[in-house]
Design a protein around this nucleic acid. Structure first.
Ligand SMILES: [Mn+2]
Ligand SMILES: [Mn+2]
Ligand SMILES: [Mn+2]
Ligand SMILES: [Mn+2]
Lengths: 230, 230
DNA sequence: TCTCCTTTTTTGAGTTATCAAAATAATTGG
DNA sequence: CCAATTATTTTGATAACTCAAAAAAGGAGA
């Protein structure tokens, strides 16, 4: 049996890998995101490499094998379906489900997960806009850009929020910037580090660069089936 | 934080305790139900005693403290609400939910649990007829007797099934003997080790003593609110 | 090229939960 | 009441995961 510790490592490694698919994930990065001391990460990586779940280049970094990636995607699928189930069926707030899913993802059986998936009508995106890995088949590729990359005067649709901090997500919801929302970028001033956008309800809001960077958008008016619009 | 291992021990100790509330639970019994060697049980019991969760009389046995019992009831509440949720809201079969709940009981937060409780309308019994410990307040006392203790010619209502084995539960469901069912005990022959009963649909069935002992009933026609009648 | 600084690995140790097997206590039958 | 059996505890080890701190490797700049 695969431990929840191993599942967490694989999932984090996969997510790090996605930020730069060609590069190896450095050990220091892994230790940081797993919140362990570097020596712990080295020890764990050695056992994962021995289990054939990743390739380990000492002093170089790591990369998941096909087997490791498959397991990671399985955990990610559980995580995201659980998040959506908690929001849609149990009425939890989208700002708190990430923490809940972090433990439930290791406890929910395949049978229960597929029941949730059915009840949710085979959703393609989780509450934060992240794609749900399909039970079989390749992971869909997303074409998101951070909000500050949108030229002023363009329309865009909010696709995903890259920060799970409840306070940030509550701010997003208060200002009606949840995934699926159509926005219009009124201005972007790199010097002022500020993006101003218009939202459908007619109001407008100005964000600093740090906040705007956490908002991933799709250019133009794209329809995104399966996304919840809270 | 309390580990799931400790939660499992406390829950099992509580359930053993109920079989004879005045006596101490012997170490051998604990080791057997936890499926560990006796030495393991001794080691764990020492740490639980040090944590103030139980009283340990070496070579005598153990008994939960008030604190230990409270924790045990909390775990039991989670277990039974989860079972009912899996049956009523996710459509799982009642014969399989025990195993699912065995792991989920350690992963579901209080917040999620209370959402389930609300959605289920504050149920009083789980799918197997076991009472759900209330969030606060005393555990209700049940007055069940095993089916073979019912005199022939009496009416009774099936209250609970004391065996979680899926094959047994499926047999019970096939023969419409789920909790809440009104039955009539046609005959009980200790020599033949056989109980014959009539069920509402008009058919009758004969059970051996071992199977009948696992069926707990309430005498007479009692209404039991909150029990699911599948 | 040779420090100095950063990153990574190694070493030694602790915690939790487990087993195998030896030692000990308690019980029970003759 | 003693010997044999049974129940329980003790002892010594192991596996998984972790940290602290020492050691080693790999740059980057002078
Ligand atoms: Mn997790
Ligand atoms: Mn998410
Ligand atoms: Mn359990
Ligand atoms: Mn039950």
């Amino acid at each position: 049996m695969i431990s929840s510790t191993v599942e967490n490592y694989l999932k984090r490694i996969y997510l790090e890998q996605q930020t730069d698919p060609k590069a190896l994930v450095p050990m220091g990065k892994l230790a940081a995101v797993m919140q362990v001391v570097p020596g712990t990460a080295t020890a764990m990586v050695k056992t994962l490499a021995d289990s054939g779940l990743l390739e380990y280049e000492p002093r170089g970094g790591i990369r998941l094998t096909a087997g490791g990636e498959q397991l990671a995607l399985h955990v990610l699928r559980r995580h995201r379906i659980i998040e959506l189930f908690l929001v849609n069926h149990l009425g939890l707030d989208w700002s708190e489900v990430h923490a809940e899913a972090e433990t439930l993802e290791h406890a929910v059986s395949d049978k229960v997960l597929e029941r949730m998936d059915t009840l949710l009508n085979h959703p393609r995106f989780d509450p934060h806009g992240d794609p749900i890995p399909p039970a079989k088949g390749r992971m869909p590729t997303e074409s998101w850009i951070p909000l500050p990359a949108v030229p002023a005067g363009q329309r865009a649709q909010i696709a995903q929020l890259s920060d799970q901090d409840p306070a940030f997500l509550q701010f997003i919801e208060r200002n009606a910037l949840t995934p699926g929302t159509e926005i219009y970028v009124a201005s972007y001033d790199p010097q002022a580090d500020a993006v101003t956008l218009n939202v459908p309800d007619g109001s407008h809001i100005t964000l600093g660069g740090a906040a705007a960077e956490k908002i991933m958008v799709r250019l133009g008016r794209v329809s995104q089936c399966g996304t919840r619009v809270p």
